[in-house]
Nucleic acid binder design. Structure first.
Lengths: 233, 233
DNA sequence: CAGTGGTCTAGACCACATG
DNA sequence: ATGTGGTCTAGACCACTGT
């Protein structure tokens, strides 16, 4: 009658989550062994294993050999952030994106930057500032430093037309990045460029990027008051 | 001579990432079919499949049935955020955590809240405000609304000693949450509680929580200037 | 030591999307 | 129509770790 032919790992996941939510598998308690569950569901252990592995990834379960699988006493809270790629973010709203370079300068890394990136003091860097507009309204101000040793071609690039992010993605597509978010008050320069009052609260987003452990770039974006970063979920 | 006995999906992943970073498998290009790769690595397709599936999860690859596996033209940037559980965050720094309720009030949901949570207008809610201290210095101000229908026991709870987050986790351990971050200026009340000047830039973190689609709670946390949220990576 | 999860193999069928 | 990934089965050996 039913259409059940084979049991999918999705089925196992669904039912397992149901049991966790219902408290049938209570927080902290140990689940039956994979072989047991496989027997109950009439599927192979491989299938159960995949289901349980994913549930562990998702923060529901904790697994240890010999000790077994247990329901996380307090659920692991994790959220995925989609990284704001400014151009796409603006165009997704239907607005027209515009980039404008403010300044570009090659110089020796100041101490704070060298310390932050782990560069030798005085290493060559390029300092770049730029504005991003949505339909000609200010959207974000970018303040970026690029490690010349990591991307020698940056010495020849003026960034007049192409934003540094898009340029860098062409040069070094795959990098590791660390982010942080905070609130800062607009100083006179930021206030002018963003068209807000001095002291206005801005969301600042730092981004540190490495390629094979080598620091590539450190960028700070300042967003207009009211802008929010959201999780996908 | 070598110790190679079997090929692990980790080996496949490692080598695949290496090839992507080296440009051997260039952005946008199509990889050989799983059966081909399995032949090359002298392992089963199952093993290749797991490696490729995880690399797709991690943002390196894009997979489609028939079309095959290709290297993401521009890498998918995603970051994992560990959710700030204030008590743990404070205690992790070695500071002493202290919670203090500011106010608690049962009332009908105001329109903006009903709209935001998807409640019927006038639904019963509890409004709670509280302070979180680190070593008796202000750390964050919490402004929270709880849907009584989702957690009837909240009607009996005063939150004098136990913070709402910890209480809620006991009541409903497994929930779905959506977050957003932004910058706001401290109003007079926030300035007083946090010990900063009015207008100071504060990081605000919203958190909307549901259980089986039912809205449970909406909370906003305001953090002192200087506070930053970081990704794990 | 012994039990549990971690992983690989070998083979099969299926679903989907492209041409 | 056909090729590619998606998934399941059945069985095996191994690695870790609690007792």
């Amino acid at each position: 009658m039913g259409k059940a032919e084979t049991v999918s790992y999705r089925d196992v996941k669904r039912i397992a989550v149901e049991r966790i939510l219902n408290g049938i598998w209570a927080p902290g308690s140990v689940l039956p062994a994979e072989t047991e569950i496989a027997k109950e569901f009439a599927c192979t252990r491989t299938t159960v294993n995949r289901a349980m592995r994913e549930l562990a990834d998702e923060g529901y379960l904790e697994r240890k050999r010999k000790a077994g699988t247990r329901v996380r006493p307090s659920p692991l809270r994790q959220a995925k952030l989609a990284i704001p790629l400014i151009r796409e973010e603006i165009e997704a709203t239907g607005a027209r994106y515009r980039y404008a370079r403010v300044s570009r300068e090659g110089l020796a890394a100041p101490d704070w930057l060298a310390a932050r990136l782990g560069l030798e003091p005085g290493a060559a860097v390029v300092h770049l500032t730029a504005m991003h507009y949505a339909d000609d309204r200010p959207f974000a101000f970018e303040d970026r430093w690029i490690n010349v040793a990591a991307v020698p071609a940056v010495a020849e690039e003026g960034f007049e037309d192409l934003g540094p992010n898009e340029w860098l993605v062409q040069q070094i597509p795959y990098t590791e990045a660390a982010f942080s978010f905070g609130a800062v008050a607009a100083d006179a320069r930021l206030a002018e460029f963003l068209g807000v009052a001095a002291g206005a609260p801005l969301l600042s987003a730092d981004r540190m990027t490495r390629f094979r452990e080598v620091p590539v770039t450190f960028a700070v974006f300042y967003f207009l008051p009211g802008y929010r970063v959201r999780t996908d979920t």
